[in-house]
Deep mutational scan, measured.
Amino acid sequence: TLFEALYDYEARTEDDLSFHKGEKFQILNSSEGDWWEVRSLTTGETGYIPSPYLA
């Protein structure tokens, strides 16, 4: 399933992933509550992002 970022986000820890509004992601793991592990389709990087920032 693909999701798109609604807002920009700046990583706060080394496990987080910074991203920009409009960036698209593949969800790798959504079992961690509000923090999902994703792969950016723009950069190929993986990390955790806050799920409320996605649509």
Rank of each mutant, 00 (worst) to 15 (best):
K21S: 05
R39H: 05
T13A: 11
A5Q: 01
L54V: 10
D16T: 14
Y53M: 11
P50G: 02
E32G: 13
E45P: 00
K21C: 07
G47N: 01
L2T: 10
G33N: 11
E23H: 05
S18L: 05
I27P: 02
W35V: 07
S18F: 06
T1M: 12
K24R: 09
W35P: 03
I49K: 12
F19V: 09
D15R: 15
G22V: 02
K21Y: 05
R12V: 13
E4P: 01
Y48M: 12
L2S: 07
S51Y: 09
G44T: 00
P50E: 05
G22H: 03
R12N: 10
P52N: 15
L2Y: 14
L6T: 14
I27L: 13
Y9W: 06
A55R: 04
N29C: 10
L6K: 09
P50N: 02
T46S: 05
P50Q: 08
T43Q: 02
S31H: 09
E10L: 10
D8G: 02
L2V: 14
R39D: 04
I27M: 04
L2P: 06
P50S: 06
I27C: 03
S30A: 13
D34F: 14
F3Y: 13
S31T: 13
L17V: 12
T43S: 09
E37P: 01
K24Q: 10
G44C: 07
F3Q: 02
S51N: 15
D8R: 14
S40A: 05
W36C: 04
T42I: 08
S40K: 12
E37A: 03
D34V: 08
E14R: 08
G44Y: 04
N29L: 04
E32I: 13
S51M: 05
A11F: 02
D16V: 14
L6I: 09
D15L: 13
K21F: 11
S31L: 10
E32F: 14
F25I: 01
K24L: 15
E32V: 10
A11E: 02
S30R: 12
L41W: 07
E23Y: 03
G44E: 02
G22I: 01
T1C: 14
S40P: 04
I27T: 02
F3M: 09
L41Y: 04
I27H: 00
S30V: 10
L54K: 07
W35Y: 11
G47F: 09
D15W: 15
E45W: 08
L17D: 00
D8C: 08
T13M: 10
P50W: 13
P52L: 15
Y53S: 10
R39C: 05
K21H: 04
L54W: 08
S51W: 15
T43A: 00
L17G: 15
D34Y: 15
R39S: 05
E45F: 09
F25K: 00
D15K: 15
R39F: 06
Y7R: 06
Y7H: 06
P52H: 15
L6M: 11
